[in-house]
């Protein structure tokens, strides 16, 4: 009886240990690309000609648009915010997360817009962002103008 109980107990222990060994824990960040893609809203932007239909449904203002399919399912833009600096220019931050197990380099640039959603100044130069595996980094950009700036749009691509 005792021997039978020991065998039973040993079997259960082995099964438990083997089952626990099979549990695969993903380290953070866990990027659900399906959910991220479903959050991409198709926003109608104002047409170039007032009253006309806009062909542009993507790339809404005040957001980061990933324009490179090579990193579309590799990075996740967690948030993007903007604020006024003491000199009156606009400073924007975008937190970018590398969801892969490999180092990535991305480049981003920003176009700032005025109240009429026309470009208020030249687009910024491409700025490189280094992302070690499963880390986040901050893309930061300043506007040149002050009170003329009302909106922005960030483009992001893989760094060459």
């Amino acid at each position: 009886m005792n021997r039978h109980a020991i065998v039973k107990g040993s079997t259960v222990l082995v099964m438990f240990l083997s089952a626990s060994a099979c549990q695969h824990m993903e380290p953070a960040p866990i990027c659900d690309m399906g959910a991220i893609a479903s959050q991409r809203t198709l926003v109608s932007v104002p047409a170039a000609v007032p009253g006309g239909a806009s062909p542009l449904q993507e790339m809404p203002l005040n957001s980061v648009s990933i324009t490179d399919h090579r990193i579309l399912n590799k990075v996740y833009v967690r948030n993007v915010t903007a604020r006024r600096t003491p000199s009156g220019t606009v400073e924007l931050y975008a937190q970018v997360i590398n969801c892969t197990d490999h180092p990535l380099q991305t480049e981003a640039r920003t176009q700032f817009y005025d109240a009429g959603q026309a470009p208020a100044e030249p687009v910024s130069a491409w700025k490189r962002l280094y992302l070690p595996p499963r880390t986040s980094n901050i893309y930061r950009e300043f506007s040149l103008g002050t009170t003329s700036i009302h909106a922005y749009m960030v483009e992001m691509r893989e760094g060459e």
């Binding site: 220019t89 400073e91 910024s124 130069a125 950009e141 300043f142 506007s143």
Partner: peptide, 16 residues
């Protein structure tokens, strides 16, 4: 140069 220009214009001592 783009980065420095934007940074200088955001410095209140130099640009405000």
């Amino acid at each position: 140069t783009d980065q420095m220009m934007r940074d200088i214009l955001s410095n209140p001592r130099l640009a405000a």
